[in-house]
Design a binder for these strands. Structure first.
Lengths: 186, 186
DNA sequence: CCATTATTTCTGTTTTGACAGAAACATCGA
DNA sequence: TCGATGTTTCTGTCAAAACAGAAATAATGG
């Protein structure tokens, strides 16, 4: 499966980005390749195109499937598994956010909650308690907000992004007057 | 610098999360420690408390400073450098988002832009062009939105999170009627 | 300017994760 | 059921990153 120059650059860059974010390079390359090509490939084709071992492809696909980013399809008259990803970037974004939140963000929130609930928590200094509580609250808010956003359709999400500035004005008016640029100092 | 049980759990967990997100474990542990303690420590104290080599601390601090997450202070009558982080979670969040965006997100947007601008781009299949264009547009929108959010005060951001649901209703009404739950199928 | 203390850089070791290739396993058609 | 084809698991190797300790460098106070 020959890649065009454009496709190759895309795949390679995506691989780099993946590593930076704690994702195996081969995993992100496979995902990127399935996305740019926009059609199902079998493991052999992936292996050849990316020049990685067949086993490496197999494990990476397993991982991508566990992230719900890749699914199996079949081609008539061919008993090999073919793999494809969604070509809808919004859906991909949603899936990635949902999965990462569930695996990495939520457990942290729970840990913070358990620290706060612990009998030992009262023994922390007042300021120390405040910091942990503030962290917990921030994470809870981010989590709840993100759950809400995940429920929206791509079209609605798109509007929220586009209208960011408007939303800001709306929100500012919605609560007690507050200096808008009272940023905490460095 | 003795840690309480609560503090230790916090620091250890933060270290784990860091690795998961492509941040060196020692780096995130140091940051977490400075945050929970809420007071400046010198390199020696960090080294002892976390049981890591002095040199490791030095390099990690350098990295944290490059991320603008830690700064140097001094204690009267002590010529050693002391290091501290902000104890404002909102400020920390903002800093992390800003830095990561600048280093990892923006370059990807620029790459996509350059792919689209390339003369070769026209040779891609129409669907292939669409996918790359859609990716670029999504990233541009996310980037612009995030820049806007980064400009807001913590108080305003807090409101936006809290009023997420309300914002959603507001946005839905703001454009042509659109089925709110027309999610793309899996 | 020297002794002392703090900090960074350098070098080698250890650990971890990615990966290839082989072997084992499963599935299908004949 | 057997051969052929496809897939996963296992094992060993390799490379990159984290890390420790030592050495070198810089800064400070006397």
């Amino acid at each position: 499966m020959q890649m065009t120059d454009i496709q190759q650059q895309f795949v390679l860059h995506w691989g780099e980005m993946g590593s930076l974010w704690g994702v195996n390079r081969t995993v992100s390359q496979i995902h990127a390749l399935l996305f740019v090509l926009g059609k199902p490939l079998n493991a052999e084709q992936l292996s050849e195109t990316l020049n990685v071992a067949r086993s490496n492809v197999s494990n990476s696909l397993k991982e991508l499937q566990s992230w719900q980013l890749v699914r199996v399809t079949h081609v008539l008259g061919d008993r090999r598994d073919y793999f494809e990803t969604s070509v809808d970037v919004w859906e991909l974004l949603r899936t990635i956010v949902r999965e990462r939140k569930e695996r990495e963000f939520d457990p942290t929130t729970r840990l913070l909650q358990s620290l706060v609930n612990s009998p030992d928590f009262a023994r922390e200094s007042p300021d120390g308690q405040d910091r942990i509580l503030a962290t917990l609250e921030l994470m809870q808010k981010l989590g709840a907000w993100s759950d809400e956003m995940l429920r929206l359709s791509p079209a609605t999400l798109d509007k929220i992004l586009t209208l960011g500035a408007t939303v800001q004005r709306f929100v500012r008016g919605s609560a007690a007057a507050q200096e808008p640029e009272a940023l905490s100092k460095p």
